[in-house]
Design a binder for these strands. Structure first.
Lengths: 222, 222
DNA sequence: CTTAGATATGAATGATCCTTCAGCTTTGGT
DNA sequence: ACCAAAGCTGAAGGATCATTCATATCTAAG
């Protein structure tokens, strides 16, 4: 199949070809697309990527396979659309939060960022959890890198604006904070997603971030 | 295929059927198995699970497909063996570390645990990275839950033994520490695996753990 | 009411891939 | 040297699945 020629060494997507095939013009098709989107998440949740087939998605969405191919040139494009939408949601939420927190103190920043992150991730935990594991189909690392980079940059700017601290190696601190946030929530969602654990996360994560920021900033405060 | 009857709602493995089909008795076969193991990791690294086929693994290992099926009843069993081996390695490393650190102070504990974790994960980063994403083939969450639980318990015991602090909700602190460690390393390996970032991780993660433990313990120290 | 364009259908196609098995080669003990 | 057990082979069977396309249905503007 020609598809395989698009990849150099891993399942790396060629963005141009991952875009939707056509944009809906009537109300009917907009509904269809939403149904497909929704069905995809459901199928992902009940069987993981390994069991996601075009037929199953179409079935669940109540449309025929052919319909799917009218909007997405292939399965990967569908998945890509899903992931991208999710990333954008979270990215926006975090951008809003960091903007709002500019110039405040370390405690406010730590708690604000941690809470915003938790809120964003939990808001559609369904989609988030569904999306973990899509990496089997195409290389997410590029997208994840970009997201991580964006987040680190936002946090870095935020730290620079803190009114009560400054850091010797602010970039590293921002990087570490992003890793702590992103990683801990992910691990809990994947390995131990219970109400109790989410409560713990909400209680402890902001404190942990705060403690780290204070410790990292202390050595440099006059 | 009958395989599908083994799963209730997700790709949940039936442990009994994931075990190796037979144990090697001659040196020859031990070599073969090792080659297969090794080939599997290589194939995973260069194409992710989506491109891992029995034929490709066999080819890379320099044996025939049939040989693989002499030791593993099916593809999943092969992957399962890989994952389990890796989990055991890390689990052992962490058990050793926590044992060694019993009764020491918070700083020693934080740095010791973080360093042990980093060492274990980096030692065979190759295997670790290869394994992320296997979840497409069968449900890893059971295994991950168990691992997370084990680790939390170890850390909990360690915290209880700390000579210079005690905690109001030690379980939650242990849980959070495990999540911070596990998550941050994973995220960096997946999203931004550069030498620079690993250096940052080595520098910042122990400090972050320490800061958190001190903050969490402070409220309770007389 | 008509009709062009938009949208939906689903059987058929072709490709991929897991798994088996009947026959072959190698090993190690006697 | 001989042979029984262990190990290896790879073509063929059978199943799944992504994708296409000829055909049918629907929508809305004129």
């Amino acid at each position: 199949m020609i598809l395989q020629l698009w990849y150099s060494h891993m399942s790396r997507p060629t963005p141009a070809l991952l875009k939707p095939r056509k944009t809906p013009q009537q109300t009917r098709s907009a509904v269809t697309i939403e149904a497909i989107h929704c069905a995809t998440i459901q199928v992902l949740l009940t069987g993981g990527i390994g069991r996601l087939t075009t037929t199953r998605v179409a079935e669940r969405a109540g449309v025929s396979v052919g319909t799917m191919y009218q909007y997405y040139p292939h399965k990967q494009a569908l998945l890509f659309a899903l992931v991208e939408r999710q990333f954008n949601l979270i990215e926006t939420a975090m951008r809003d939060a960091t903007t709002r927190l500019m110039g405040t103190d370390l405690r406010t920043i730590a708690h604000g960022v941690a809470t915003a992150w938790l809120d964003a991730k939990m808001a559609d935990m369904v989609a988030s959890r569904a999306i973990y594991g899509i990496s089997a189909e195409f290389d997410l690392s590029e997208l994840m890198s970009r997201a991580a980079q964006t987040m680190t940059t936002s946090i870095d700017a935020l730290l620079a604006s803190a009114c009560d601290a400054h850091f010797a190696d602010r970039q590293s601190v921002a990087f570490m904070l992003a890793a702590l946030l992103g990683g801990s929530v992910r691990v809990v969602m994947e390995a131990a997603p219970s109400e109790e654990n989410f409560a713990r996360l909400r209680r402890e994560l902001p404190e942990a971030c705060h403690a780290y920021l204070v410790a990292a900033g202390r050595s440099e405060v006059a």
